[in-house]
Computed example of a mutant assay.
Amino acid sequence: MNMDMFDAISNEVRRKILKSLQVPKSFSELLEELDIESPALAFHLKKLDGLISKNNEGKYTLTEEGKKALSIINMIESQHISLSNQTEIPMIIQYVDNFIVTENMLRKLKEKGRKLIIRDSNTVEFQAIDPNLLNDVLENIENVSTVKCPDELVNVISSKSKNVITIRTAGSSEEDKEGFLSRFLSAIFPSIRINNRLRIVYDGPLQTSNDLSIELDGGVVTIFKGEPHLLAKCVDMGDLDINNNTIRADGCYLKISYPDLNSLKININGGKVSVSEIKMNNLYVEIDGGIVDLNIAVQNEANISVDGGKISGQISFLPYKESKLLLSVDGGIGDVTLSLPDDISVISSSSINGGFVDLPKGRIGKNGVLYINASVDGGVIKVKENKGHTN
């Protein structure tokens, strides 16, 4: 048995996928049957490359190698031999302009049994880190322009690198003398590379709902106000799934127009999502390596979690009795500008475990209250108020 096949069948989820695909199934059918999150399913499907493929209907099916793997699974399980070699899904950092890797971040990943993968980014900076820890957690760095690191990490990073243009050690550039915060927040959004093999797989209306959910595993999504409509460009039909009020995409370019919402949920695992000119009661964002850019209005709650990646832009909070902005960053960047009514109360609080937080000062107003809570564990959160704004 080759190592690729062993890696595939040593994971319980991937074994379930192979067993399930004795009958071809779509992404959404697998998602419902396996009861796992969309990014997790996308990760495991990529690991099964060569053992599964898509048919003319865009459904996943077993290849000849996949059928061999399934036979091996059935034979071994019939003999009550364990195949367990469970590994957690790695943290994938992708399409980021500047990213800083800290020892605290790597220790947390190691505790969870997760690896770190960095790809398709501009600059990656490694702080002082135990080389053995870095070697254990870092899986690879690919398609990165510049890597900055201490001298003692060069050997480890070089061994994990592919298509890295420059590796700079401390003191090799005047730019390395800049402060931690200025390097973090001077990032400008990178140009996301779009696969030139994309073709239009859908161009038509969407079902109107008060709630909209976007799940992205690489690619670019632009959302703006308008009549409900979707233009989707993907490699093939199977990379796009539309199920009621949920749109899932794998490496696609999506252009979505939609009216104001009760709630918008964004789950991004690599790639970029931009949202503009839409009003909503509630916003929920989870970023696991990727970029989200906002220019929106929220009335009730904005709950944003960044686990490697970046959230930026402007949020206008509409007058309301009690509103909340909850920001959690674990190895990433939160850079948000607020537009607030002049007479709203602001109450700010934070929790810092390595990193930097800058929040607006609290104030007393007469028309509602905005609670801001920021939690950072190795990263940066900067929230500022647009003083020129008046509601």
Rank of each mutant, 00 (worst) to 15 (best):
D4K: 15
A8C: 15
A8I: 14
S10E: 00
I17W: 03
P24F: 09
P24M: 10
K25L: 08
L30C: 08
L34Y: 06
D35G: 04
E37V: 02
E37Y: 07
A40Y: 06
S53G: 05
S53H: 06
N55H: 11
T61W: 00
T63L: 08
E65D: 13
G66Y: 00
A69H: 01
L70C: 06
L70P: 09
S71M: 12
S71E: 15
Q79S: 10
L83A: 09
P90H: 07
M91R: 10
I92E: 03
I92F: 04
Y95F: 10
I100S: 04
N104P: 00
K108S: 13
K115G: 03
R119C: 08
S121P: 06
N122I: 14
F126V: 05
F126S: 04
A128F: 07
N132T: 14
D136H: 07
S145W: 05
S145H: 09
L153K: 05
V154N: 09
N155S: 13
V156K: 07
I157V: 14
S161M: 07
N163G: 07
G171A: 05
G171L: 12
E174M: 10
F180C: 01
F180Y: 14
R183K: 15
A187H: 05
I188A: 09
R193D: 10
R193A: 12
I194Y: 02
R197Y: 08
T208N: 12
N210I: 03
D211Q: 08
L212K: 00
I214M: 08
G218K: 03
G219N: 04
T222M: 10
I223F: 05
K225G: 01
H229E: 04
L230N: 05
K233V: 02
C234N: 06
L240E: 02
T246P: 03
A249S: 15
D250P: 00
Y258W: 09
I266P: 02
N269V: 11
E277L: 09
K279I: 06
L283N: 07
D288A: 09
G290R: 05
I291Y: 13
L294Y: 07
N303C: 04
S305D: 15
G308T: 01
I315K: 05
P319Q: 04
E322K: 15
L327W: 01
G334W: 01
V336H: 04
T337E: 13
L338E: 12
S339N: 12
I344F: 03
I344D: 00
S345E: 01
V346M: 08
I347L: 12
S348P: 13
V357I: 15
D358Q: 14
P360H: 10
L370A: 10
D377I: 09
G378M: 06
G378I: 01
K382D: 06
K382Q: 14
E385L: 01
E385N: 08
N386Q: 11
K387P: 00
